[in-house]
């Protein structure tokens, strides 16, 4: 931030002559008191003003990229305890009914650069918006890491089939995929990584129902990189007998960093 001393204002610097930038000011959070109240009323009363505020928010959101991360404390256990607290039920009833997965997926297909996309969709698609019963499973401590995370939106070749989001966690050497409905019951869907040399290497089979988590071999971990392609082919049950794809590619997407 600047330590510039106040400069002499240029001519015509009186507040009266400044342009009306209330939409930007509201989006930026500059206003308080009456000015803020007036601007909020305008959002409700003037659709054009509301659109303008929205456009500013979108523009300014680019600045979030510059915001440095600060290693976060492990609050997940505390967050879970709060979620499990039944007294919060009245708040939970305010939550909107989760949209269905089928409506959301097409809109999310373009968001391959954001790992959070897939995870958010998992949350959005959860069947009931009330906190589930406390889990008996012990929760491992969560440490926010800076290990590179790669994501891909694996787009199906056929329109109307849900995109599969893949998130690769370099630290765990594991790739997680959302539910794939890419092949019929009489075949298996096999996931391949195609690195820069163009040779496909099998990463494993996708489960017919629910998401899939695959822990990768050391060789395959080395093949996972930004720009590598993930592809799904139709293979016989239990996978390709040859070690190379034998069926058609039904979906593919490129890995990119978060």
């Amino acid at each position: 931030m600047s330590d510039l001393p106040p400069l002499d204002p240029p001519e015509g610097d009186g507040p009266d002559e400044a342009p009306d930038m209330a939409a930007a000011e509201l989006a930026l959070g500059l206003l308080d008191g009456d000015e803020r109240a007036v601007a909020i009323r305008r959002v409700l009363a003037e659709p054009g003003f509301a659109r303008s505020v929205d456009r500013w928010r979108t523009h300014l959101a680019q600045l979030f990229d510059l915001w440095p991360a600060v290693e976060a404390p492990d609050l997940f256990a505390r967050i879970e305890r709060s979620l499990d607290r039944p007294v919060e039920a009245p708040v939970a009833t305010l939550a909107l009914a989760p949209p269905t997965k089928s409506r959301l997926w097409p809109a999310l297909a373009g968001l391959s650069s954001i790992a959070a996309a897939g995870l958010l969709v998992v949350l959005v698609a959860r069947p009931v918006p009330v906190p589930p019963a406390p889990s008996a499973r012990p929760t491992a401590p969560v440490v926010a890491t800076r290990a590179p995370t790669l994501v891909a939106a694996i787009d199906p070749e056929t329109a109307g089939v849900a995109t599969v989001t893949a998130v690769y966690d370099a630290q765990a050497g594991a790739i997680r995929l959302t539910e794939a409905k890419l092949v019929g019951d009489d075949h298996s869907a096999e996931l391949w990584v195609i690195p820069a040399d163009g040779t496909p290497h099998s990463l494993g089979l996708l489960r017919a129902r629910g998401g899939t988590a695959l822990t990768l071999s050391r060789d395959n971990r080395a093949r996972i990189a930004a720009g590598a392609v993930l592809a799904v082919t139709v293979e016989p049950i239990k996978g390709s007998p040859t070690g190379l794809p034998t069926g058609p590619v039904v979906a593919k997407g490129t890995l990119s960093p978060v």
């Binding site: 991360a69 600060v70 290693e71 997940f76 995870l119 958010l120 998992v122 949350l123 589930p132 926010a144």
Partner: peptide
């Protein structure tokens, strides 16, 4: 059908992926 436990696992992943970014915002 997803179970609550799977949702929690996804939510924990989301936390792991995003907490440092969001903490940077809150802290500042």
């Amino acid at each position: 059908m997803r179970t609550g436990e799977e949702d929690r696992a996804a939510f924990r992943d989301l936390y792991t992926l995003t907490a440092s970014k969001l903490f940077g915002i809150c802290y500042r």
